[in-house]
Amino acid sequence: MSAPGPTAAGPSTASVVFALLRKELRVELRTLESVPAMSLLAVTTFVLFHFGLNRGRVDGDLAAGVLWVTLLFASMLAINRLFVADLEQGGFDGFLLAPVSRSALLLAKAAALGVYLVALELVAVPAFALLLLGPSIGGALPGLVASLALADLGIAAVGTLVAALAVRTRARDLIGPLVALPLLIPVLLSGARLSAPLLAGGGPGPLAGRWLATLALYDLVFGLIAYAVFDFLLED
């Protein structure tokens, strides 16, 4: 028997992340468990807001609030599902047995969640503009895209962390949103404050730098925290 080498070198983290992400998206394409449900929930929620608020058109604060609350609730569906297939079909153990960095799973799952969020927004934002938004969305788009991109990073990081935390609990469908929603309040707050002037009746106002900075700080802090604690959620 040959002497063990210093390290049984595994594949590079980048290639592992890529393999995990590819597997993730392939399973989603086959099962269509997350994105269609999220999009449908978002459009349904816009209809609910129409009747709940008794408004045909919204703008400003109200528009921003309706949009962001809807996106946040829709994202809960993906967060709830994120690790379920891995848990039920043994992918967790399969991954843990492989000689690869644990963080690769965090990165791949966060990237997958990010992709789902972007897909959701590609449906939900046009639907919102069509169904509820008073002012034309044209001028608001660049600022809105920037806010959504920054917010998606934070939701992906916190969502992945909470999904991993909740998936091995009983009643995970309850624990996930109950933990994730309060944690995401700063994202909602910043996102809504950023987009309220963009969606204002009298044409789009400027982006508030301090809210962009808050979102960026949130992304950074929770990105680092997720990276630091994620391993503890995997190992037994």
């Binding site: 597997k23 392939r26 399973v27 086959r30 099962t31 297939a85 079909q89 043994g90 992918g91 153990d93 399969g94 047995l97």
Partner: peptide
């Protein structure tokens, strides 16, 4: 190499 009770395979793939 580990063979456990579960096959550790994704059903949809």
């Amino acid at each position: 190499g580990f063979v456990g009770h579960d096959a550790l395979l994704y059903r949809e793939l």
